[in-house]
Design a protein around this nucleic acid. Structure first.
Lengths: 134, 134
DNA sequence: TATTGACCTTATAGTAGCTTTATAGTTTTA
DNA sequence: TAAAACTATAAAGCTACTATAAGGTCAATA
C-alpha cells in the first residue's frame, strides 16, 4: 500500500502521515526501489490508533506515552492514570469555558444593535475592565 | 513611560508589547534619542484593552477587527455581531468538550488498574474505534 | 574611572500539530 | 508522447507568544 492509499483509508493527508513518521509516532515503512513508502496493514492500525487518540484530544506526546505502554504484560495502571489526567484536564477546560460564556453573555446584554459605537455597551464593558482575571 | 514600566503596569512581558506593536495592535510609540520606546497613558489603555479581549478568548485578528470599529459614530452592530459569533464559538467548544468528557469517562470505566496491558479496556476501546468522529 | 547591574535594542528560534509551498522525480492515463 | 496524478524532500506558515543571543545605554558603586 502506498502513502496515498493509506491516507485515503484512514482519512488523513499524506503529509500528516509523513509528519507522524518524522515525529516517531509511526515506524518508518519499507521503501520501493524508487523511494516510495510501502505500508502494511499494521501501519494502518497504528495510524488509526493515533487518529482516534487525537479525536479524544490527546497530544502527540501523550500518544507517544501510550504507545510506550503497549507491552502486553505490563500492568495498565499507567494507561489509566494518563486517561484520568486527561479527563480532569478536559473537565477544567469545560469549567473555564462555562465561566467565559457567562461573562460574554453578560457583556453582550449590555448593548443593543441600535446604538452608535460611542455608546456601545460591549466596548465600554471591555474598556472598563470589571473582569475577573482567569 | 518606558516599556518596562508599561509592562509592569498592565502585567505583561516587554516582549509581548513589542510583539503587539509588530502585529499592528499597538501604535508605534515615539522614541528617545537612544532608541528607547516612550509610552503615554493612551498606550496603556490600548494595551489593557487588548489584554482584556485576550482574557475573553478573542484572537488577535478579532481584536484587530474590534479596533477597526472604534469610530464613535458608526453603529455598533458589527461589534455585537463579532461578540455573538464568539459566544456561539465558545458554546460549541463547550458542547464538544462535554461530549468528549462523556466518551473519556466511559472509556475509563472499561478498565481497572489490576489488569495487564493485554487486557486493558482503555487501549482496547481506543483500538476498536467504536468512536463517533468529532 | 572602571565596572557592575538593570534596563533597553533587534533578530532569531522554539512551542503544537499540522498545512502549505517549492522543487523535483515517477507512474499512470489519455 | 505528453499531461495528469502521484511520490519525494525541505522549508516556511499558522497562533500567540516565550526564550535566547548579542549587543547598546544608563545610574550607581568600588
Amino acid at each position: 500500500m502506498r502513502i496515498g492509499q493509506l491516507a485515503q483509508l484512514v482519512g488523513v493527508e499524506t503529509q500528516t502521515i509523513r509528519f507522524y513518521e518524522q515525529q516517531g509516532l509511526l515506524p518508518p515503512p519499507d521503501r520501493q526501489d524508487n523511494g516510495y513508502r510501502v505500508y502494511t496493514e499494521k501501519h494502518g492500525e497504528g495510524l488509526a490508533f493515533i487518529r482516534r487518540c487525537r479525536i479524544l484530544g490527546l497530544s502527540l506526546a501523550e500518544i507517544h506515552e501510550l504507545q510506550s505502554y503497549q507491552d502486553p504484560h505490563q500492568p495498565c495502571t499507567a494507561v489509566n492514570a494518563l486517561l484520568d489526567d486527561h479527563i480532569s484536564h478536559v473537565r477544567s477546560q469545560i469549567t473555564a469555558l462555562q465561566a467565559l460564556e457567562k461573562q460574554l453573555v453578560s457583556l453582550r446584554a449590555s448593548c443593543n444593535d441600535d446604538r452608535e459605537v460611542e455608546a456601545c455597551g460591549v466596548l465600554a464593558g471591555i474598556s472598563e475592565g470589571n473582569m475577573h482575571q482567569q
